[in-house]
């Protein structure tokens, strides 16, 4: 199951940001500066970690860290 901790771990690793920067309300694009390549890498990492498939179109649903957790929960 996705938890805040393991979702944050992936985001910190992929985006090379500090743990303290990643909060549930943090926006991946606006606060952490994730660009299209970062989102591709994040989707791949989430897919591998949680064994799910994420269509490209669903990236618009992944605005904040909380959105990511909610989305992954819905896919498991």
């Amino acid at each position: 199951m996705p938890t805040f901790e393991n979702t944050r771990r992936i985001i910190v690793e992929v985006l090379d940001v500090q743990e303290a920067e990643v909060l549930p309300e943090t926006s991946l694009a606006n606060d952490l500066g994730a660009d299209s390549l970062d989102f591709i890498a994040l989707l791949q990492a989430f897919e591998a970690e949680f064994n799910i498939q994420i269509p490209d179109a669903d990236v618009s649903k992944l605005e904040t860290v909380a959105d990511v957790i909610k989305y992954i929960e819905s896919k498991i």
């Binding site: 690793e13 992929v14 985006l15 090379d16």
Partner: peptide, 9 residues
């Protein structure tokens, strides 16, 4: 190694 922006840089 797992994907990391640090490595890409």
């Amino acid at each position: 190694k797992p994907y990391s922006k640090k490595i890409l840089k």
